[in-house]
């Protein structure tokens, strides 16, 4: 009895979720199968697959939000959207999309190397590929796999944020560093920042501890560092989730007057703090999750009018998005209150 009931419940719940979950992606319309030759050829709807990492922290949640925003702009496209918590899931997602016959893929890879073979397979099938932020490895003959590769400049992220910190400290002070999930993105940022710090003998890097781009983990790491170091002048938090965690630890230790924090990525709450001239958050550095929307837009506009070959004559294959320093003066340009990030 219980089992029958449970089964029925599960089935009903599943139906409900499938119905509710189709969300902004238009329900797969009963696409008229290519009409026989005598009728005028109906314009074929583009089908584009988008796959991004699952929302495991604020920034990736922002990516998901902006992806949906961009999809809503083009209701005439058949969207296939998926998020993946790990490369295996993402590879499976892309394989499913290939089976469903997508014309193009927009991929923000969870990891570079594992996703490269499946991207190559897609390319061989003639699928147009836009790769955002985390790049594939080079394909055969060292040729890039993606038709368009769009990424944020992580070295500039590290360099510019460290330069701001050095200037604001007047070239002298004790700092601690919170690092993200160990991966190339994090390594590029931290190494670029360390180059700047090392060039200034007055700057002492007391410690470098992982906060894994997580508010909770950064909070605990910061508590430990606060206990260990009686004098800290600034925290290079490199990410806004970690900034919030560090800030809480500092406030609870009653030391908010002694130090300030530099995060990164432009979370709306943090941009607001900069805008409101919060003494603990004098600036921020962008690393916009909206770059996924840029990628989606480029993909649609390149393919939509059937002029791909013409467009690709001038479209750059590699686009590097510069990062910008957000200060109280320009903060309002980076504040999107309706975004989730």
């Amino acid at each position: 009895m219980f089992k029958t009931f449970a089964l029925g419940f599960a089935a009903a719940a599943a139906c409900l979720f499938v119905a509710a979950g189709s969300g902004p992606a238009p329900a797969p319309t009963t696409e008229a199968p290519a009409a026989p030759a005598e009728a005028q050829p109906a314009k074929k709807r583009l089908r584009i697959g988008i796959t991004v990492p699952a929302a495991d922290h604020g920034w990736t949640a922002g990516v998901g939000w902006w992806a949906r925003k961009a999809m809503e702009l083009y209701p005439d496209v058949d969207w296939v959207f998926s998020t993946a918590a790990n490369p295996d899931k993402q590879i499976a997602d892309i394989e499913d999309m290939l089976v469903r016959g997508v014309d193009a893929l927009v991929v923000l890879a969870t990891e570079s190397a594992p996703l490269t073979p499946v991207a190559m397979k897609a390319k061989d099938k003639g699928v147009f590929i836009v790769n955002v932020d985390r790049g594939f490895l080079p394909g055969k003959d060292g040729e890039p796999i993606a038709d368009i590769f769009l990424e944020g400049d992580n070295k500039a992220f590290g360099r510019k944020s460290a330069q701001f910190m050095v200037e604001k400290l007047g070239g002298k002070g004790n700092i601690v560093i919170l690092t993200g999930i160990p991966c190339t993105v994090d390594t590029d940022r931290v190494n670029a920042a360390m180059e700047v710090f090392n060039a200034h003998p007055g700057i002492r890097v007391l410690a470098q501890q992982p906060g894994f781009w997580s508010r909770e983990k950064a909070l605990a790491a910061m508590e430990n560092m606060l206990t260990k170091y009686p004098r800290i002048d600034a925290v290079w938090a490199s990410d806004d989730d970690m900034l919030l965690g560090a800030r809480q630890a500092i406030e609870e230790a009653g030391r908010s007057k002694q130090m300030w924090i530099l995060g990164g990525a432009g979370m709306k709450e943090v941009v607001k703090m900069v805008m409101d001239k919060d003494a603990m958050v004098p600036a921020n550095i962008t690393y916009p999750p909206s770059m996924i929307a840029t990628g989606i837009h480029l993909c649609v506009s390149t393919l939509r009018d059937g002029k791909k070959d013409e467009v690709m004559k001038f479209m750059p294959r590699h686009l590097l998005i510069d990062v910008e320093l957000i200060t109280p003066q320009n903060a309002k340009n980076y504040y999107f209150p309706e975004s989730v990030y």
Binding site: A54, A55, G58, W65
Partner: peptide, 9 residues
């Protein structure tokens, strides 16, 4: 809970 707020905080 993720669906309720679309992954946000």
């Amino acid at each position: 809970i993720v669906a309720q707020v679309q992954g946000a905080e």
